[in-house]
Amino acid sequence: MKSDIILAGVGGQGILTIATIFGSAALADDLYLKQAEVHGMSQRGGDVQSNLRLSSKPIHSDLIPKGAADLIVSMEPMEALRYLPYLSPKGWIVTSTLPFVNIDNYPDLEAVKAELQKHGHVVAFDMEAVAKEVASARSSNLVLLGASSPFVDIPQDKIEKAIEGLFGRKGPQVVEANIAAFRRGREMALQTK
């Protein structure tokens, strides 16, 4: 088993939560793992990414080489495109299509979406809209986690255990909402894949 994943988004969108959940699920599954994060200045509304590497064999580098990523997982469509140089030809993109516009030169959204579709292996939908249907907008990142989960070889129950572990202290309602968001995202991706 080997999954090299680039997680992308804008500071504050919750991509590190996705990394944390994959991380504890991987630890429970006895996998090797390396996960490089961004802290500091760029967390203030700038572009952020995390390199997440999971493997059944020891991992050397904390960074994923260009052209080697199996998966780009993004909370934001333009941020998904930013990491295309890292994607392997067989790799998949799983991204929300909802743009986060905090800059005045954001490119034409239709052009962004068209460029995503050009890649072929894409799961793209509005994660926030789906999150609102099953839980609330705050669970958008859990929808994304669900949508990316069919591409990562970790059993579903281990990921759900990790979600419980992370949100457990906030009460059963929060856990249920996040599990629902995760499952819905997973279903959506399985329909596309």
Binding site: R44, G67, P85, Y86, S88
Partner: peptide, 21 residues
């Protein structure tokens, strides 16, 4: 020596500098 072919250069991407909250 492992050789990976770099993925496509993105076209519709601009910089997103950090900002005060």
């Amino acid at each position: 020596l492992k050789a990976h072919k770099e993925g496509n250069a993105p076209e519709n991407v601009v910089g997103r500098p950090p900002a005060l909250c």
